[in-house]
Each structure stands twice: as structure tokens, then as C-alpha cells.
Design a protein around this nucleic acid. Sequence first.
DNA 1: CGCGGAGACCTTTTT
DNA 2: GGTCTCCGCG
Length: 652
Amino acid sequence: MIDYEADLNQEQRAVVMSDGGYILVIAGAGSGKTRTLTYRVARLIESGVRPENILLATFTNKAARSMLSRVAKLIESNVETLWGGTFHHIGNRILRRHATLLGYENNYTIMDDSDSKHLLKSCMSDLGISKNEKFPKVNILNDIISLSLNTGKDIEEIVTGRFPYFFNYLTDIIKISLRYRIRKKELNVMDFDDLLINWRELLVSHPDIVKSYSEKFLHILVDEYQDTNIIQAEILDLMASSHKNLVAVGDDSQSIYSFRGANFINILNFPEKHPDAKIFKLETNYRSTPEILNLANKSILNNENQFQKELRAVRRRGARPVFVPLRDVYQQADFVAQHIIELAEEGIPLGEIAVLYRAHFHSMELQMEFVKRGIPFEIRSGLRFFEQAHIKDVTSFLRLLVNPKDEVAWKRVLRLYRGIGDVTAERLWKFLSSQEDSLGAIFSDEFLSCATSKAAPGLNELRESLAAISRSRKGSPEVIINKIIDGGYRKSLNERYGESASRVEDLKQLGSFSSQYDTLETFLSDMALMTSMAEENETDYLRENDRRVVLSSIHQAKGLEWSVVFMIWCSEGMIPLARALKEEGGEDEERRLFYVATTRAKDQMYFCHTLIATSKGTRGRVLAPSRFIRELAPSYIAPEELPFDQWAVNKR
DNA sequence: CGCGGAGACCTTTTT
DNA sequence: GGTCTCCGCG
């Protein structure tokens, strides 16, 4: 039996013990919202609900896994049948069974962003839209289309609202988006957005399916509700339509994903939309010292449009947050590194220290300094493992095995071979796509005749490689990956990059990682929906406190905590990021980022401000401290440590 | 038509 | 550091 009295406070217990129905939990930072949700899941199971009847949507797959392992510990039984994961992850699990109802085949493959861009490019050339200097680049196109899908607004509204300077190209942009949509179906591929859009589509157009899922998942729980978008909110309402057992947990002050279509209006409107909803607040903060919490509270007060709440600290007084003016990034790197060494000498484990920043490239100098001084660190941002060229090359082979219509994968594979460039790859693909059995068609003479004799040796290599791979199609993903590496890919890596040992090492790791999967399909979908393999391996949440300093973007630090947090580059233009301010509501969202960063710290918080910009465009310019700091401080900040006590709240 | 070299350009945040 | 683009050569 779980001792709810002893383990939870009164606020948390109210949520955990509440009956079903619509429940909204407004939970402040560090208030134990994940813990509360975990206990609620445990209580449901303890009271007789079977794990397979519970659906748990979280922001990352990692969060779901760590919650589930905690639940399992609490109730001392396994909960593997419980469906937990991100919306995309769950959407994929559902769509795999019903894709044919939507004009897809169930073996569809999932494209990541860079694949989408390739496909968009090919749509542009299909339509004969030439690359004009001023025409939006593909990544902008991708953003426009994605935003339109995720907000439910049409392309015109998005372009006028957020990209008015592209208004002249509106008709072309719309044409491309339509073409793109058709092509995705033809190629039997879905991008990230499709996993949500199609999921909703499935539910809207098939009442019997809604009914069966809402009978299966009797309890639905959602974490980080403030970061859901309109589509996700609709999906939840549909899934819960018959029983209304929906628990939404979130903190409107921590909504930081609006660029992805997330809309904290969802959480603000929840009570209106569900008048019978019970609303709970978790306002006790267990994480931070009062000094840190007060600063965060005061900062977020500058935002309008939020739930009224004041987080109360229960911890004793601690060290005051420190403002550290520094000359430039090099002095900043030096300060942070030096200070971390001192903290370590005082006995603070490196795993309890984090450095947070607004954008990945803000950490470059720091990384170099850490390497120089031998400080072990871990980067939680930047290049994603699965998006690296060599990883994508190998997975492209796997993708076309699963879905031979996957044009993006085919072209990527074809171009790996000598003598095959864009033009030949296009011709070969045109031929393959016209054939019933694309995979078999590569062995026909016609296939060879699509290319010049220069490409013949390459095409033969491709044939051998694919023949070998196809033979082991039924084998484990690991076997296939090894076949690909040994079937000439290692050689081609060597030609391209010279010394490629570390890349081969990556691939071997990918192979051994894949061995836990039975089928290629599940392996591929998981890969598309994950950012690194590390998160999969550390199922034991207790292992998270590694002996390494964490460098992370603020976005990725969501939900985590450290004893000491350094926030670097707290200068105007960096946070708030100049570019982000141009968006509507940009300043408020940036302030929420500042709030998220601050509330990650348990004991000590350092705000580093660099006076002189060193980046390409603005080299040498003098930067003011971030407005988020200035609004908490007197008009002038002395160039030395300034304790928070001396700051006055400057209401504008 | 493919490929390599040279140089520009860049980097908001992510499933 | 990585990717994209342009250009001239074979």
C-alpha cells in the first residue's frame, strides 16, 4: 500500500485522490507536478484500473519512461502495457493500425525535418517554381506549412501574420503546400505534423474508432499541457469524449513552445471549455530557495495574461542570486569554468551543476574552455544524433526496405554511389517509382540503362548491397545495419570524410542499440521520434545524476533541476533573443524562458552578462544587460557582483 | 553530368 | 564545424 498521507502534501493529495472527470492542475515550477501525476497513475492502478486502460501523454519519451518506472516501483508490479509517450509517439502507435483508412499504407515511414525540406525542394521543381533570391527558403516554407497545420490557421493567415514580407509569393507558397501534402501520401511518408493531423483526422472521421479508443483508454493524463497545440487539445477531447476522465497538468508560466504552434490559451481556456472541470493548484515550491523563487516570481509578474498564482517556497533561506557582469564570452567561459572548479572543490557533484543558454551556439566558447580545463560535461543540445549525415544514410537503406515508395530515402541511397548525382538519381527514381516492385526493379536491365556507363560500377555495388540486405530482411535491425556497413558503406565513408572511425563507431552503436527492437518498423519510428539513444538507455531515473556538468538550451532543461545553475549570455539581444522579439508575444515568451531557466536552480543561480558582443554581425558592440534583469534591478548595475537583495522591482 | 574545391553563410528554441 | 552554392574541369 502506498502511504499517500506521508508521501504527498495536501495539495498534491487532492489531485491524486480526486475522482474522474475533467481535471485541470495548475502546477507551478518545482511543485512536484510530475510526482503528483505519478502517484495518480499509481493510485488508479491500485484501485483496480488496468494499466492498459491508461494513456499518459508527456512532453518527451524520457519523461514518460521515468514516470512509468516510478509507478512500477510504487505499486511493485510492471506497467508495461500502459501507453506512455509523446503525442507523436502515441499518434504513431495508433496510426500504424489505421493508416489505410486515410489513404496511407500501414508501413509508412516517418520523415524528419531535413527530409521534409528535401521533399519540399522537389515539390518546388515539380511546380517549376524557380529559386528566386527573395523567395522563402525551404526551411521557412517548412515553418510556414507546419505552423499552419499546428495552429489550424490557413497559409494566408500565417504568411500575413508572421512573414508579411513573403506576401507576394503567397499563391506559390499555397501551391507548394498542396503539392507537398499530395506527395507525402504518394510516397507513403508522414512528417511529424502528420502524426498529429492524421490522428485527429482519424478520430474526426471515424466515430467507431473514437469510441473504441475512448473505451480502451479510460483514463487520460497529460503533462505539460501548456505546451499543447490546438490539434493536440482536440485529440485529447476526442479521446476522452465518452468518459471525460482527462487530467491536464501544466504551468502557463512555462509555455515556451509557441514557435511550434503550442498555445497556452489551451490551458487558460480549459475551464471554459469544460465547465464541469475541477481545478487544482499546486503552489508550494519544494525546489528552490526563497531567494531564487522570489526572483522568478517577480520576473514573471511582468507578463499579463496568466493564471493568478504565487509560488510559496518551503525551503530555508539560501544564497542570493548573483549577477555577474563580464567583458566578453571568453571571460564568461573563464568565469564559469573557474567557478565550477571551485564548486567541485567545495564538494558539489558536477552532475548537480548546469549551464543554460538561449541558443546552442551560445555555448561554443564554453565547450572549448571546459575541454581545455578537463571539466567533464554533457551537451544536451545541438546536433541530434539521428540527424547526422552518416546515421541518416544508413537508416535510409532501412527505410526503403520498409517502404519502397520512400523517395527521399531512395534518392539519398542512390546518391551515395560514385557516378550518381542529382540528375541520375532523379532518373533512376522515376523508373523505380513506375515499377510495381521498386526493390526488385533495381535488378532489371532497364534500371541500368537509366544511367550512363560511368555509374555502372556504383549501380552494381548498390545491387549487391541491397541483395544482401534483402536476404536478411527478416533478421534483426542490427544484422541489417552491419550488412550495410560492411556492404561498402564503410568504404564510402572513408572516401568522403577521410578518417571515419568515430562515424563507424556511431553506426556500431546504432546497431547495438537497434538490437532491442524486433522489427525494422518499430525501430525506425522510434528513431524518428527520439533525439538521442542515451535517453533510451537510462531507464533508471536514479542514474541521471551523472558526474558531468550539463550544458543545455533552456528549452531542453524543462522539467529538470540542478543545485547550481549558470545562465550565460544574459544580455539584451541574446535573451530576449533579438529575432524572437519580432514575433507577436515574443517578449512574453522570452520572459517565460527566463522564468523556466531561473526555476531550474535549487540552491544557487548565476546570471552572466557579457558586455561586448563577439558574434559575426555585431562584433564589438556593447550590449546592455538583459531587460529581464534590468526590470528587476535599479537603472544602473555596478560592474561587480550585485546581490538580488539590492534590486528593486521596476514596474513598467 | 558528376565532382571537387573554394567560399559564403549560418545557428532560436524541438517532436 | 557543418552545410549549401557556385564554378570550372574532366
